[in-house]
Amino acid sequence: MNFIFSEETDFSTNRVIDWLYYYNSKYEKFIGYGESKDLYTFNDKKYSITFGGKNNIESNSIFTNNENVNINSTWFRRPYKYADHFSSDFDYEENAYPAGKLHNAINSRFKVFWDFIGYKLEEYHHLGSFQTNSLNKPIVLHEAQKLGLIIPKTIVTNSLDDLHSFFIDCNKKIITKSIHEVIIDHRHEIKKDEFIFLYQMTKLITELDDDVPKIFAPSLFQEYIDKEYEIRTIYINGECYSAAIFSQLNEQTEIDMRNRDANRPSRYIPYKLDDSIENKLHKLMIKLGLKFGAIDLIKSKDGEYYFLEINPVGQYGDVSMICNYYLHKKIAEYLVNTAN
């Protein structure tokens, strides 16, 4: 049995599942709380994980319909740790314990349970990490720099004065992006059945408005790098699969390639990074304890490779499909073949 921790609508997961079917390998997909009637429910299984005592005899067992589930491998594609099925199923009665407090208690207990299950499953053959589904951007940038990768000039600050000095130092062209993940996008109704859509991208700053407060929450800024092209590298268990993306040719994708232009998609070509860069990325992934990651780099007009960031649960379908890397097949083979 291959366990997959993911989301309801992650197309890459489904492509891998297609290949698992092809290899006649069973799978079970777990998706998170809030995603309605998922394919996994806690109550249809029996879990027992035994350990300790003088002889320290350890045993793990998961039963479905009285059948022991033989764990082959686990893919922590996009793990969600708060699979609480109680709140959505339970109708509160008048004399029930306050819903908020009960919900909080149940949720925190589930988190411990899921963390423990994830910790145990990482003892088996696995790809991805249950613990690491987001990274600390400034720490990753620091670690990348320590390993010899070039990173853009960066400042984390809460001071407008210091930001202003940095802005001047970077020739009045800087970018601002979230220090963590982007804010969850939002559809806002402006008239009946008419909407605006709010979402976060990397933004270019070419002037600092007068109305910016002197102090704001600590934020991340980087110098703007004039790019020749972008490189997206999908790292899977020691191998790098890269694509050069000519996002700078379209104004809409120039600053952030995620702002895709449906009528004029960016051109991708398969790309081989220099061995020295690949070796440094490999060392960085080992340092971060990751076997999978979507890594963003820039090849600048001055000929340098700039490391930007790693998404440990990033999308890779575009790179796989356009560059013919067959990454879904490779991931399925990695899960099926426990010897690798």
Binding site: S178, Y199, Q200, K203, I205, V212, A217, S219
Partner: peptide, 13 residues
């Protein structure tokens, strides 16, 4: 509130 949150994008849907 961090600086970047004042620079989120809006599109008409």
């Amino acid at each position: 509130v961090s600086f970047d949150l004042h620079h989120i994008s809006i599109s008409y849907q």
